[in-house]
């Protein structure tokens, strides 16, 4: 039996345990089916959308906010941050632009979330 998962689907916040010994897995403590699906996803493959900033040259500010185009495995958040820390991009960028294709693998891109003009251009 795994440790209880706090459900985030609604404000009720059920404490759900997932029994992964059985087949199919059995959930306990959830008040609804959406909670069961969430708890099973959290147990099998927990994922998070990562937001952060990367260094940008040529813009009015030194950091450009970015997001992964899909949730990435929870265990890869810190290593993905490490990759971001070694990345520098150049203005201009538009909100929604793909900055690095397949950045986190599995076809998950790195996307800019702010439009930053090139302020150094003549």
């Amino acid at each position: 039996m795994n440790k209880p998962i706090t459900c985030i689907i609604c404000p009720k916040g059920c404490q759900i345990t997932v029994n992964a010994e059985t087949s199919p897995w059995i959930t306990e403590g959830n008040a609804c089916a959406r909670g069961a699906a969430y708890a099973i996803q959290e147990t099998a493959d927990p994922r998070r959308t990562l937001t952060a900033t990367v260094a940008i040259l040529g813009a009015a500010i030194p950091r450009c906010p970015v997001v992964t185009s899909a949730p990435i495995p929870k265990g890869e958040l810190l290593s993905t941050m490490d990759k971001l820390n070694h990345l520098t991009i150049h203005a201009p960028v538009n909100a929604g632009d793909v900055l690095v294709e397949n950045f986190a693998g599995e076809g998950i891109h790195l996307v800019a979330t702010r439009t930053l003009e090139n302020t150094h251009a003549a």
């Binding site: 937001t51 906010p65 997001v67 909100a95 929604g96 979330t113 702010r114 439009t115």
Partner: peptide, 22 residues
């Protein structure tokens, strides 16, 4: 506010703060 969670009601899409403003 570079995290996501903005605009779910308005745009039916989860934006970051800067993108919502954009």
């Amino acid at each position: 506010c570079i995290h996501t969670g903005f605009g779910l009601t308005r745009f039916k899409q989860e934006y970051t703060g800067p993108h919502y403003a954009q």
